[in-house]
């Protein structure tokens, strides 16, 4: 679990070497202003500079859209045989920011809760994570520090920090050591100290701030259950689901069956779903348990700050990446919403 110091060029060479063996995803520029975790190609340049959080978080690679749950085949005996999907290939998620790293460890816990999700598990144990430290807030949307995600290192195999003198490469696991065998970086005895010094230069406050400490949120949200804030934000919400689909800790899915035209074979898949879409909580009747958009906003927010934190005991499920607010066309920002409720409930400072 050593530390190394390398030039960006050396790290880039090493990453390209790894990318030859398996899919390696690194944030790449897409469109005019956005980034996406895409497979690193031979000729692709690696951007070490500050990149914004990608459109969808890297954790979605572990829970892909339209994932096969099984294929079914009717045999000569007229019985249906259910076949599991092909195991997925090993991959490397590289350039993962602490917020997204925390998102992945949250997903790990949810998916490992009994009964564990076998397909997520299979992908996860075959995934190596190379994380990238943040020394400055990525933009005016982020609030990772406020929800305790900035210092996340758990779950990473290798941890990179951009120092003035080069890239600090820290191995955090046996798998990290394994993939670093291929690198020829010089050892750095005081890696941790150098990282702490660099982290000491972070601006304060780091990004936006919560009006209350995260630990106080569940109680505050219980008090503010009937808060008009949800409905006020809801007035301009499109219920389009973007906020959920870009969230590092959203994992809800819809299940769909398709069969071949001849009716003999079929496939069941799961696709990304969103609790902001009206049909999400609909049941036969028909009855909708969250028919009002404000009720859905409340559910989304309480899942991040109350329901899941209390269920899994992991602290805030919001990792402060700011994606939901950044990508909301209606400019609905979850931090603003929480802070408005804090003011209203009187829990605000």
């Amino acid at each position: 679990m050593g530390s190394y110091l390398a030039t960006e060029e050396q790290v880039s060479t090493w990453l390209h070497l790894l990318a030859k063996e398996r899919d390696l995803f690194w944030p790449r520029s897409v469109g005019q202003f956005n980034y996406s975790f895409l497979p690193l190609g031979e000729r692709d340049e690696i951007c070490f500079d500050r990149y914004l959080p990608t459109i969808v978080p890297p954790g979605r690679r572990l829970l892909p859209d339209d994932e096969t749950l099984f294929t079914s085949q009717q045999g000569d005996d007229r019985l249906s045989h259910y076949l599991p999907p092909q195991p997925s290939a090993p991959m490397v998620l590289a350039g993962v920011r602490p917020c997204d790293l925390k998102g992945i460890t949250q997903l790990d816990t949810v998916m490992a809760a009994a009964p564990a999700d076998p397909y997520y598990h299979q992908r996860r144990v075959n995934t190596v994570i190379i994380a990238m430290n943040c020394l400055a807030p990525c933009d005016s949307r982020c609030f990772c520090s406020a929800v305790g995600a900035l210092g996340a290192q758990d779950g990473a195999d290798v941890f990179l920090t951009l120092l003035a003198e080069g890239v600090l490469v820290e191995s955090l696991s046996a798998r990290g050591d394994e993939i670093l065998v291929k690198a020829s970086f010089s050892l750095c005895e005081d890696g941790k100290e150098r990282r702490l010094v660099a982290e000491g230069t972070r601006p304060l406050p780091f990004g936006r701030e919560l009006a209350v400490v995260p630990e106080a949120l569940p109680e505050m949200l219980r008090k503010g259950y009937e808060s008009p804030v949800y409905h006020r934000y809801g007035e301009r919400c499109y219920s389009c689901g973007t906020c959920n689909l870009v969230c590092p800790t959203c994992y809800c899915f819809e299940v769909r069956d398709e069969m071949s035209l001849d009716g003999f074979s079929g496939r069941r898949s799961r696709t990304w779903d969103s609790c902001m879409i009206p049909a999400f909580a609909e049941v036969a009747g028909p009855h909708n348990f969250r028919a009002e958009v404000g009720e859905r906003q409340r559910h989304r927010l309480k899942r991040k700050f109350e329901y899941l934190p209390e269920r899994f005991g992991l602290g805030s499920f919001c990792v402060g990446c700011g994606r939901c607010g950044r990508q909301c066309t209606a400019n609905i920002d979850i931090l603003n919403m929480v802070n408005d409720i804090a003011v209203e409930v009187g829990g605000g400072s």
Binding site: F33, D66, L245
Partner: peptide, 19 residues
Amino acid sequence: PANAVCVECKKNENECVYD
């Protein structure tokens, strides 16, 4: 499914038109 086009844009990781 009565889902917005945004859902598929996210699945395809398109840059938002509004961006």
